[in-house]
Write a protein that binds this DNA or RNA. Structure first.
Lengths: 238, 238
DNA sequence: TTGAACGACAGACCATCGGTCGGTATAATA
DNA sequence: TATTATACCGACCGATGGTCTGTCGTTCAA
């Protein structure tokens, strides 16, 4: 093969792109480095020039995901007109929105990210996401406690639970997507709607808020978004 | 090597035992099949006679763990004198007890099970445990809803959240164990106590129970158990 | 008592994997 | 231009999970 020299950033991104595609379709363990390398049109030497190991590639990929997720809620984070409750609700709603009515490619991503094969990748993304989100959540909750809107004896614990809830809804959404038949899908949507309500209730309580303060999304929102999505998909299929 | 023939069940258990030891100390990926096989005093042929793949070995190991966990709460499950709330509390307390003041070898197990290396194994165990516990939880919750002690619109969702809580406390306990210094340990214990309270509050709420109904353990219990444990350990060390 | 059938086991062997290394072409710097 | 540093190449390596052929011992029908 002729020698090809690219801008380091581009080469690195290409490696990450193809790693992402292959890790998601085959799973981290089953996708071999050689596949990633040839798919990216690079060589062993090039790869190991950028990443010290396959593991490091996974790590970098997880960080990139986390960075993107963080960027997606940056405006909610920066908005100076939001009080702690508003910001928390905004965060929850935004993360939910990002999962449900997002671009098709990201949608497909979610679909695959929850396959058992992708356990490792998923876990690393969660870890990276937790590392960047948790401190922000803690800060918001602390602020809320100070100004009296929240009431809790364990801000870190609450932040952890909020993260958990986020992750759990992802799992439920994944089930909803993966469900084969329309009936499966309906059941999954119902489950997701219920789960969101459950989380709202629990969060209200552990934050010492009056009922209905935490509002991740209006009832029926999920169903509406999902059926819209389904129409688009079947439209494409025809 | 001379040919050794053992009773199939014994051979299988031996393979599982040594796999457990090696998977836990080295992690699933880093522990090689050959190591497991030689440790168990078997051969490649023997191994592949019992398990179709390394993956299957992991699966079988996870199932064995789940079975043991289930056996640990069997009495609570069977006790006919318990109402749904009592049974749920018993389950939560028992699972918490099993984690904290258990036999030293199981304690060491917990210590290692949460190392990042053991992600895959841990996940498989959780999966297997969820598969066997969730239906039982759902049944209990349904019963509680019928006889009016619980009030919820989504028993499955609540069951899922209960499972999640269980898993999450495991993580917090692991941190408490892993914490190096006594100060770290104290912080972790504090965090765990808080987290347990948080869960109790949240569960009370999503089950429509009056405050204080869900009681995973009296305040201070964790600290007491942990310091007792610590004394034993330092006693041994001297 | 034999011998076919089968379960249990042994271990040589294989493709492939992640990772290494010596080397080369290009860019940057002097 | 000379020298160094960067980006890249691909042959090569040991180890790994997995396969395959074959052997030993038991069982049980004839």
């Amino acid at each position: 093969m002729p020698r090809v020299i690219k801008h380091p950033e581009i080469r690195r991104e290409e490696l990450l792109d193809h790693a992402q595609a292959l890790f998601l379709t085959l799973g981290y363990e089953k996708a071999s480095l050689n596949e990633v390398i040839t798919a990216a049109g690079a060589s062993k030497g090039a790869f190991y020039h950028y990443f010290p190991s396959k593991e490091a590639l996974l790590e970098a990929l997880a960080e990139r995901f986390a960075r993107q997720a963080l960027a997606g809620v940056q405006d909610v984070l920066d908005d100076p007109g939001l009080d702690p409750l508003g910001r928390l609700n905004g965060l929850l709603a935004q993360s939910r929105r990002a999962k449900i009515d997002t671009a098709p490619e990201a949608w497909a991503l979610f679909e695959t990210l929850f396959r058992p094969d992708n356990l490792v990748l998923f876990y690393r993304i969660n870890l990276a996401a937790s590392a960047s989100f948790s401190p922000l959540l803690v800060k918001i909750i602390r602020q809320g406690v100070e100004d009296g809107t929240f009431r809790t004896f364990d801000p870190e614990g609450v932040a952890d639970i909020v993260m958990q809830f986020g992750m759990a809804t992802q799992g439920v959404i994944a089930k909803a997507i993966a469900g084969g038949s329309d009936a499966d899908m309906d059941v999954a949507i119902e489950a997701l709607e219920n789960r969101v309500r459950l989380y709202e209730i629990a969060l209200d309580r552990i934050l010492g808020l009056p009922d209905g303060s935490i509002c991740i999304g209006e009832p029926g929102y999920v169903r509406a978004a999902m059926t819209a999505r389904r129409r688009t998909n079947s439209g494409k299929a025809q």
